[in-house]
Protein backbone atom coordinates (compact mmCIF):
# COMPACT_ATOMS: atom_id res chain seq x y z
CA UNK A 1 0.00 0.00 0.00
CA UNK A 2 1.36 3.38 -0.96
CA UNK A 3 2.28 5.53 1.97
CA UNK A 4 0.45 8.39 0.34
CA UNK A 5 -2.70 6.41 0.49
CA UNK A 6 -2.28 5.54 4.06
CA UNK A 7 -3.35 7.22 7.15
CA UNK A 8 -3.17 6.16 10.68
CA UNK A 9 -5.84 6.30 13.25
CA UNK A 10 -5.55 5.54 16.84
CA UNK A 11 -8.41 4.34 18.83
CA UNK A 12 -8.82 5.11 22.46
CA UNK A 13 -10.96 2.88 24.48
CA UNK A 14 -12.11 4.69 27.54
CA UNK A 15 -13.99 2.49 29.91
CA UNK A 16 -16.55 1.26 27.44
CA UNK A 17 -16.89 4.49 25.51
CA UNK A 18 -14.57 4.48 22.55
CA UNK A 19 -13.23 7.26 20.44
CA UNK A 20 -10.98 7.35 17.42
CA UNK A 21 -8.48 10.12 16.88
CA UNK A 22 -6.47 10.92 13.84
CA UNK A 23 -2.85 10.57 14.84
CA UNK A 24 -1.40 12.34 11.83
CA UNK A 25 -2.87 14.33 9.09
CA UNK A 26 -3.95 12.64 5.93
CA UNK A 27 -2.24 13.50 2.70
CA UNK A 28 -4.60 13.97 -0.20
CA UNK A 29 -4.55 10.76 -2.15
CA UNK A 30 -2.12 10.66 -5.00
CA UNK A 31 -3.14 10.13 -8.58
CA UNK A 32 -6.62 10.64 -9.94
CA UNK A 33 -8.83 12.22 -7.32
CA UNK A 34 -11.33 9.59 -6.27
CA UNK A 35 -14.20 11.94 -6.92
CA UNK A 36 -13.04 12.35 -10.50
CA UNK A 37 -15.88 10.17 -11.72
CA UNK A 38 -18.79 8.39 -10.11
CA UNK A 39 -20.79 9.96 -7.35
CA UNK A 40 -19.35 12.40 -4.91
CA UNK A 41 -20.67 12.08 -1.38
CA UNK A 42 -22.14 15.29 -0.06
CA UNK A 43 -23.04 14.16 3.39
CA UNK A 44 -22.07 11.47 5.85
CA UNK A 45 -24.50 10.25 8.48
CA UNK A 46 -22.94 8.63 11.49
CA UNK A 47 -23.60 7.68 15.07
CA UNK A 48 -21.20 8.36 17.88
CA UNK A 49 -19.12 5.18 18.34
CA UNK A 50 -15.58 4.22 17.40
CA UNK A 51 -16.60 2.28 14.31
CA UNK A 52 -18.52 5.27 13.01
CA UNK A 53 -15.55 7.52 13.65
CA UNK A 54 -13.29 5.13 11.75
CA UNK A 55 -15.82 5.02 8.93
CA UNK A 56 -15.75 8.76 8.73
CA UNK A 57 -11.99 8.97 8.69
CA UNK A 58 -11.85 6.38 5.95
CA UNK A 59 -14.46 8.26 3.96
CA UNK A 60 -12.73 11.61 4.38
CA UNK A 61 -9.36 10.25 3.46
CA UNK A 62 -10.64 8.59 0.34
CA UNK A 63 -12.88 11.42 -0.77
CA UNK A 64 -9.97 13.79 -0.47
CA UNK A 65 -12.39 16.58 0.33
CA UNK A 66 -14.26 18.03 3.21
CA UNK A 67 -17.20 15.82 3.94
CA UNK A 68 -20.04 17.37 5.90
CA UNK A 69 -21.16 15.14 8.72
CA UNK A 70 -24.48 14.79 10.41
CA UNK A 71 -24.74 12.96 13.70
CA UNK A 72 -27.90 10.91 13.66
CA UNK A 73 -30.01 9.70 16.48
CA UNK A 74 -33.32 7.92 16.28
CA UNK A 75 -35.25 10.92 17.51
CA UNK A 76 -38.24 12.00 15.53
CA UNK A 77 -36.95 15.53 14.90
CA UNK A 78 -33.65 14.29 13.56
CA UNK A 79 -35.40 11.88 11.19
CA UNK A 80 -37.92 14.46 10.02
CA UNK A 81 -35.06 16.91 9.35
CA UNK A 82 -33.31 14.32 7.28
CA UNK A 83 -36.50 13.57 5.37
CA UNK A 84 -36.84 17.27 4.69
CA UNK A 85 -33.33 17.33 3.20
CA UNK A 86 -34.12 14.33 1.04
CA UNK A 87 -37.21 16.00 -0.31
CA UNK A 88 -35.66 19.42 -0.84
CA UNK A 89 -35.15 18.62 -4.51
CA UNK A 90 -31.37 19.06 -4.40
CA UNK A 91 -29.35 16.18 -5.87
CA UNK A 92 -27.40 14.69 -3.01
CA UNK A 93 -25.24 11.71 -2.22
CA UNK A 94 -25.41 10.45 1.34
CA UNK A 95 -23.23 7.77 2.84
CA UNK A 96 -23.30 6.52 6.38
CA UNK A 97 -22.70 4.00 9.09
CA UNK A 98 -25.43 3.82 11.69
CA UNK A 99 -26.88 1.47 14.24
CA UNK A 100 -29.71 -0.81 13.17
CA UNK A 101 -32.52 1.36 14.48
CA UNK A 102 -31.37 4.64 12.94
CA UNK A 103 -30.42 2.97 9.67
CA UNK A 104 -33.80 1.29 9.32
CA UNK A 105 -35.45 4.67 9.57
CA UNK A 106 -33.00 6.47 7.30
CA UNK A 107 -33.29 3.86 4.58
CA UNK A 108 -37.04 3.74 4.62
CA UNK A 109 -37.30 7.50 4.54
CA UNK A 110 -34.94 7.39 1.57
CA UNK A 111 -37.24 4.87 -0.11
CA UNK A 112 -40.31 7.01 0.27
CA UNK A 113 -38.39 10.09 -0.90
CA UNK A 114 -37.60 8.23 -4.13
CA UNK A 115 -33.89 7.85 -3.44
CA UNK A 116 -31.60 5.31 -5.07
CA UNK A 117 -29.55 3.04 -2.87
CA UNK A 118 -26.37 1.66 -4.39
CA UNK A 119 -25.05 -0.11 -1.35
CA UNK A 120 -26.71 -1.54 1.71
CA UNK A 121 -24.45 -3.34 4.15
CA UNK A 122 -25.21 -5.06 7.42
CA UNK A 123 -22.16 -5.54 9.62
CA UNK A 124 -21.46 -7.33 12.87
CA UNK A 125 -18.18 -7.05 14.73
CA UNK A 126 -17.36 -9.31 17.62
CA UNK A 127 -14.38 -10.88 19.30
CA UNK A 128 -11.71 -11.03 16.63
CA UNK A 129 -13.97 -11.24 13.60
CA UNK A 130 -16.49 -9.40 11.49
CA UNK A 131 -19.46 -10.48 9.40
CA UNK A 132 -20.84 -8.51 6.46
CA UNK A 133 -23.97 -8.92 4.42
CA UNK A 134 -24.24 -6.68 1.37
CA UNK A 135 -27.04 -5.89 -1.03
CA UNK A 136 -25.61 -3.96 -3.94
CA UNK A 137 -26.36 -2.36 -7.27
CA UNK A 138 -24.09 -2.13 -10.35
CA UNK A 139 -22.21 0.90 -9.12
CA UNK A 140 -20.79 -1.23 -6.32
CA UNK A 141 -19.44 -3.82 -8.74
CA UNK A 142 -16.10 -5.08 -7.47
CA UNK A 143 -16.51 -3.52 -4.04
CA UNK A 144 -17.15 -6.78 -2.21
CA UNK A 145 -13.85 -8.21 -3.49
CA UNK A 146 -12.05 -5.04 -2.59
CA UNK A 147 -13.55 -5.07 0.86
CA UNK A 148 -12.61 -8.69 1.36
CA UNK A 149 -9.00 -7.91 0.40
CA UNK A 150 -9.04 -5.07 2.90
CA UNK A 151 -10.52 -7.24 5.62
CA UNK A 152 -7.93 -9.90 4.90
CA UNK A 153 -5.19 -7.32 5.21
CA UNK A 154 -6.66 -6.16 8.50
CA UNK A 155 -6.03 -9.58 9.95
CA UNK A 156 -9.30 -10.28 11.71
CA UNK A 157 -11.41 -13.19 10.52
CA UNK A 158 -14.40 -12.29 8.41
CA UNK A 159 -17.29 -13.61 6.38
CA UNK A 160 -18.88 -11.60 3.61
CA UNK A 161 -22.09 -12.36 1.76
CA UNK A 162 -22.95 -10.22 -1.23
CA UNK A 163 -26.28 -10.26 -3.02
CA UNK A 164 -26.64 -8.25 -6.20
CA UNK A 165 -30.10 -6.76 -6.49
CA UNK A 166 -31.86 -8.20 -9.48
CA UNK A 167 -29.24 -10.80 -10.18
CA UNK A 168 -30.04 -14.41 -10.96
CA UNK A 169 -26.68 -15.45 -9.55
CA UNK A 170 -26.64 -16.78 -6.01
CA UNK A 171 -25.15 -14.64 -3.27
CA UNK A 172 -21.36 -14.43 -3.34
CA UNK A 173 -19.69 -15.81 -0.22
CA UNK A 174 -16.22 -14.67 0.77
CA UNK A 175 -14.37 -15.44 3.97
CA UNK A 176 -10.98 -15.09 5.56
CA UNK A 177 -9.50 -16.65 8.66
CA UNK A 178 -8.17 -14.58 11.53
CA UNK A 179 -4.46 -14.00 10.96
CA UNK A 180 -3.71 -11.85 13.91
CA UNK A 181 -5.21 -11.58 17.34
CA UNK A 182 -7.74 -8.97 18.14
CA UNK A 183 -8.63 -7.15 14.95
CA UNK A 184 -9.68 -3.54 14.79
CA UNK A 185 -12.13 -1.00 13.51
CA UNK A 186 -10.26 -0.93 10.21
CA UNK A 187 -13.18 -2.68 8.60
CA UNK A 188 -15.27 0.43 9.17
CA UNK A 189 -12.62 2.74 7.72
CA UNK A 190 -12.46 0.49 4.69
CA UNK A 191 -16.18 0.74 4.15
CA UNK A 192 -16.08 4.50 4.58
CA UNK A 193 -13.42 4.68 1.93
CA UNK A 194 -15.31 2.41 -0.44
CA UNK A 195 -18.54 4.34 -0.13
CA UNK A 196 -16.86 7.70 -0.50
CA UNK A 197 -15.44 6.60 -3.84
CA UNK A 198 -18.27 4.42 -5.05
CA UNK A 199 -18.37 4.36 -8.82
CA UNK A 200 -14.81 5.50 -9.25
CA UNK A 201 -12.03 3.16 -10.27
CA UNK A 202 -10.85 1.07 -7.33
CA UNK A 203 -8.54 2.85 -4.95
CA UNK A 204 -6.47 1.40 -2.21
CA UNK A 205 -8.21 1.60 1.07
CA UNK A 206 -6.86 3.47 4.04
CA UNK A 207 -5.38 1.55 6.90
CA UNK A 208 -6.27 2.31 10.41
CA UNK A 209 -4.01 1.42 13.24
CA UNK A 210 -5.85 0.98 16.47
CA UNK A 211 -4.98 0.53 20.05
CA UNK A 212 -7.36 -1.74 21.82
CA UNK A 213 -9.42 -4.51 20.42
CA UNK A 214 -12.15 -4.80 17.88
CA UNK A 215 -15.28 -3.36 19.39
CA UNK A 216 -18.31 -5.51 19.16
CA UNK A 217 -21.40 -4.05 17.64
CA UNK A 218 -23.88 -4.11 14.83
CA UNK A 219 -24.01 -1.51 12.07
CA UNK A 220 -25.59 -0.67 8.76
CA UNK A 221 -23.72 1.10 5.96
CA UNK A 222 -25.33 2.68 2.94
CA UNK A 223 -24.90 4.88 -0.06
CA UNK A 224 -28.02 6.84 -0.97
CA UNK A 225 -28.49 9.14 -3.92
CA UNK A 226 -31.31 11.60 -4.42
Amino acid sequence: MSVDRRFVLKSMVLGGAAGVVLSRSVPVLAGVPPSHSGIRPALALVGSGAAEAAFLQGARAAAGTELPVQQMDRGLDCMLDFEHQLRAGRPMQVIGLLDDAAATLVLDLARSAGARVHWLGQHTAEAGSTRHRLLNADLAEGCARQLSRHLHACGAGFTLNEERQGSVAPARQLAGPARSGAGSVQWAAGIGSLLATLGTRPTMMPRVSVQGTLLSGSFVSFSIEV
Binding site: R111, R116, V117, N136, D138, R164, Q165, G166, E225
Partner: peptide, 8 residues
Protein backbone atom coordinates in the same frame (compact mmCIF):
# COMPACT_ATOMS: atom_id res chain seq x y z
CA UNK B 1 -32.96 -0.17 -11.82
CA UNK B 2 -31.31 -2.15 -9.06
CA UNK B 3 -30.53 1.00 -7.09
CA UNK B 4 -34.19 2.03 -7.25
CA UNK B 5 -35.32 -1.39 -6.06
CA UNK B 6 -32.84 -1.95 -3.21
CA UNK B 7 -34.73 0.33 -0.80
CA UNK B 8 -37.78 -1.89 -1.32
Amino acid sequence: KAEQLIPY
